[in-house]
């Protein structure tokens, strides 16, 4: 029996190691997608994700208020299952000019007899407008703790910057309120 032409086990071993490495790289790639996805979504405004941290007034893009343009902004708030609260925007819809600093409030009330921690997650539609929606302060930056029966007015201070596309005349900021997963 002649097996001279068959490869040595070492030749197999080298290839197997390379292929296992390839599999390991793509296992890592799956996990790398988690931060990558977040970064990409925020950078290009995919998914309507707004920036997670407050922007200081001095860091705002230098732009005068553009009085020649008026934008409609609508606010909605939704409760996710398991959160026995009531929430509504005090101003469901406003009109503003790009570059104008505005504050609006949401009313929230704990309907249960327990202290409950909630977390608001924002989303902007149309999604491309998300990165022009700059928040100076927002109740969504922290978890909100409400005592039994407590109600509170929560503030949101923001501008819609001047670089928002000409084609957009109306945008919606929607908050989904969740039961906080890890109350801190």
């Amino acid at each position: 029996m002649s097996t001279a032409s068959l490869p040595s086990p070492r030749k197999h071993a080298r290839l197997v190691v390379k292929l296992l490495l390839l599999a390991a790289v793509f296992f890592g790639f799956g996990f790398a997608l988690v931060p990558l996805y977040d970064t990409i979504c925020q950078a290009i405004g995919f998914n309507g994700k707004t920036l997670k941290d407050a922007i200081a007034a001095k860091d705002l893009p230098p732009s005068a208020v553009n009085y020649s343009r008026t934008l409609g902004v609508q606010f909605t708030a939704t409760l996710m299952p398991g959160l026995p609260w009531e929430i509504r925007p005090l101003e469901p819809a406003i009109e503003l000019h790009p570059g104008e600093l505005r504050t609006t409030r949401f009313l929230v009330r704990n309907l249960s007899d327990k202290t409950i921690v909630g977390q608001a997650v924002p989303s902007v539609t149309p999604t491309v407008a998300a990165r022009h929606f700059r928040k100076l302060d927002c109740f969504c930056f922290q978890q909100q703790t409400l005592a039994p029966g407590e109600s509170r007015e929560m503030a949101l201070t923001f501008i819609v910057d001047n670089e928002i596309g000409e084609e957009i005349s109306e945008l919606t900021l929607a908050y989904a309120f969740f039961l906080a997963p890890n109350p801190s």
Binding site: L22, F26, L33
Partner: peptide, 14 residues
């Protein structure tokens, strides 16, 4: 298979 299955494995591990 070698490229995509690990990504699914990662996803279901998450």
């Amino acid at each position: 298979l070698i490229i995509t299955l690990p990504v699914l494995a990662g996803g279901v591990t998450m």
